[in-house]
Computed example of a mutant assay.
Amino acid sequence: MVQLKKFANERFSALICIDPFNQRVRLDDYSGKVRDVIQSVLQEAAGCGASKVIVKVRREHMPFFLEKGFRLEGVFSHYFLGSDAYGMSLFLTEERMRCPYWLKEDEIVASIQEKPIKSDPEKWQDDYVMRKANISDTQMLAKLYDTVFETYPTPMNKPDYIQKVMEEGTVFYAVEHDGQIVSAASAEINATYGHAELTDCATLPSYRKLGFMHHLILALEKELQSIYIYVFYSLARALSYGMNQVFYQLGYTYTGRFQNNCYIFDKIEDMNLWVKTPNKS
């Protein structure tokens, strides 16, 4: 299970995510003496046997991380209340650095970017219902994620976990057909910095190519805008042509790729970063 650790002393503060399942440590926020922050993150990584460290840093602090071997993987535009966050990573094992699909993933992004933006989305079919999900839907949502994903970075196949993240503020939208949820997506909101991650995108195989995800993302964006959140980002499987195309068609900008980021489907995979800011809306 993911563990969030908060550090605060006279030198620095930091919010560090310990993620044993994905064998990684992530720095989500920090202030104070940057070199002390880096030392703390690396100590946590060594303590839990992580093979990758991921940090989100402010532009002026990039040199401190570069000198410790971190490299830039993606840019979270407008992440810190309008200022960009730079996603940097340090690989701690040779195995974690191996990347056999990188050129193929480059080709997928290039192919998607060559396509014109469609002005009209897929027409909605009346026998499907799209709605905001609630606590009573956790069983059906868990069943959806368990069916779609062989493995997933978080335990979305467990109703209790879905209820927990809902209670913490994550918003889910779902498509229902014949009494079951056949497609869903969520938004994890960071009210402090005014952005949201669009994630947990899943559609049953027999319902794909019906354009549900396009409508779900739009519904989530509208919900977020109603609470004054205007910066959206998502990490999409770099090998998934369909999901990357959805974000491109919705006006998101590709801003990088996180190598061997997490376990999803049947292996550890690279994840493409897509960002949408007020300037793109």
Rank of each mutant, 00 (worst) to 15 (best):
S206F: 00
S13F: 13
A191T: 11
S111P: 00
N134C: 15
G242V: 02
S13K: 14
V231D: 13
P278V: 04
P159K: 01
D178K: 15
S281W: 13
V182S: 04
S77N: 13
I54R: 12
A196L: 09
E122G: 14
S136F: 13
V148S: 08
T277E: 08
Y128S: 05
C17L: 15
M243H: 03
E221C: 10
G87R: 03
T192G: 06
N190P: 04
E95D: 09
I162P: 00
D28W: 12
W274I: 06
R59D: 10
V165Q: 01
T147H: 08
C48N: 08
Y30S: 03
D137K: 03
K52P: 00
K209C: 05
F70N: 04
I189M: 06
E10N: 12
V182F: 09
L198W: 00
A45L: 09
D28M: 12
P205H: 05
Y128C: 03
Q225K: 12
P155C: 08
P121F: 11
K56C: 05
L218Y: 00
D266K: 13
R35N: 15
V275L: 02
N9Q: 07
K280L: 14
H215Q: 11
S31K: 07
Q180C: 10
P155K: 11
H214L: 05
A184Y: 02
S281A: 15
K267R: 15
S119V: 14
A196D: 08
R208K: 08
G87M: 12
S281F: 15
E150G: 03
W124A: 10
A50E: 02
V175N: 02
D137P: 06
H214I: 09
Q180N: 12
Y207M: 04
Q249S: 02
N9G: 10
K143Y: 10
E107P: 01
Y86A: 03
V175P: 04
Y254A: 02
Y228A: 13
A196Q: 07
A46L: 07
G256E: 03
T253I: 11
A50S: 10
K33P: 00
N9H: 03
L250P: 01
V57C: 00
Y30Q: 03
E94M: 04
Y30L: 06
F212D: 02
M88W: 03
G74D: 01
V37S: 06
N190E: 12
Y128I: 00
M97D: 02
E223L: 03
M271D: 02
A50T: 06
M140Y: 08
A14M: 07
Q163A: 15
L4S: 09
D137A: 04
K104G: 07
F232E: 03
A45Q: 05
I18C: 13
Q139P: 00
M271T: 10
E269P: 06
L216G: 03
D200Y: 01
F91A: 01
M271V: 09
